[in-house]
């Protein structure tokens, strides 16, 4: 099994011996993994297993937590993102993130999308095109094109989450991290987001944390199983679900715990 972990074709993200502590409590233990480009990689595991903590290492969102300490190496396209001279702001432009709860800004739909590009210096006359393109890519344009000036909070939860995806895409990242993006949504909205994610992988590398094993099975190419801060198993999704190599993986996906 270990061999399969080591040899992913075309890796974009490489993590070596990653350890992370919140104060005294170790949340990640010696995690090593390679995440392939232009594919969907899902992280599953019970609550508190470290899967969310792990993806927050990939865009350094954990930097915001004062007690958090990190050892090990995380490289994106060969560049150590924790190395000296790395600009976190640039990193987060390259690695976007969609959160568990839809979190649009208290602005209009248009301004939500335009916010990032505008601050990154896209000029006024190109902005409308950028916004429309992002909304189309997030499969939201047809539903809301007649009211893009109305407040983002007037959208349904599922639409808000697609708006957040569009907002992320508008700054043109290469990688998009999804932290349980459907956990606050109804099944129909969830299905739309899943379809969207599968379409996005031709343009982006997708990393998704999910509580929902069926979701991982439906949309991902590779799956990683975390337990108590350790990466237990990683491989092709089919293989993980049909023929897991570890007893605890099997126990989890067959619903014996979690």
């Amino acid at each position: 099994m270990t061999e399969a972990i080591q040899n992913v074709a075309n890796p974009q993200i490489e993590v070596k011996d990653l350890n992370l502590w919140y104060g005294d409590k170790q949340a990640l233990k010696n995690v090593s993994i390679q995440i392939p480009k232009n594919s969907v990689t899902a992280f599953i595991g019970p609550s508190g297993c470290g899967k969310s903590t792990f993806i927050r290492c990939l865009n350094r969102m954990n930097d915001l937590i004062k007690s958090c300490r990190i050892e090990g190496e995380v490289s994106i396209e060969g560049k150590d993102i924790y190395g000296p001279g790395v600009d976190v702001v640039d990193l987060r432009k390259q690695v976007g993130m969609v959160f568990q709860k839809p979190n649009p800004f208290p602005m209009s739909i248009y301004d939500n999308i335009a916010y990032g590009p505008r601050i990154h210096g896209v000029n006024k006359k190109d902005l409308e095109g950028v916004v429309e393109h992002a909304l189309r890519s997030a499969a939201l344009w047809d539903e809301i094109s007649d009211r893009i000036r109305s407040p983002a909070f007037s959208l349904s939860g599922g639409q808000q989450q697609r708006l957040c995806i569009a907002r992320t895409m508008a700054v043109k990242p290469e990688i998009i991290l999804f932290d349980e993006p459907c956990s606050a949504l109804d099944p129909i909205s969830t299905a739309k987001i899943e379809e969207l994610i599968m379409n996005l992988k031709k343009d982006y590398t997708i990393v998704i944390v999910t509580h929902n094993m069926q979701q991982a099975a439906r949309i991902s190419d590779h799956t990683a199983f975390f337990l108590m801060g350790e990466l237990i198993e990683f491989g092709k999704t089919r293989q993980i679900f049909e023929n897991p190599g570890e007893k605890s993986t099997e126990d989890y996906i067959t619903g014996r715990f979690g």
Partner: peptide, 17 residues
């Protein structure tokens, strides 16, 4: 709400912005 800050920072926007 801290979610606003998170959302903005995750877009590669600096803290002051």
């Amino acid at each position: 709400p801290p979610e606003y800050r998170e959302a903005s920072l995750a877009l590669g926007i600096s803290k002051w912005q």
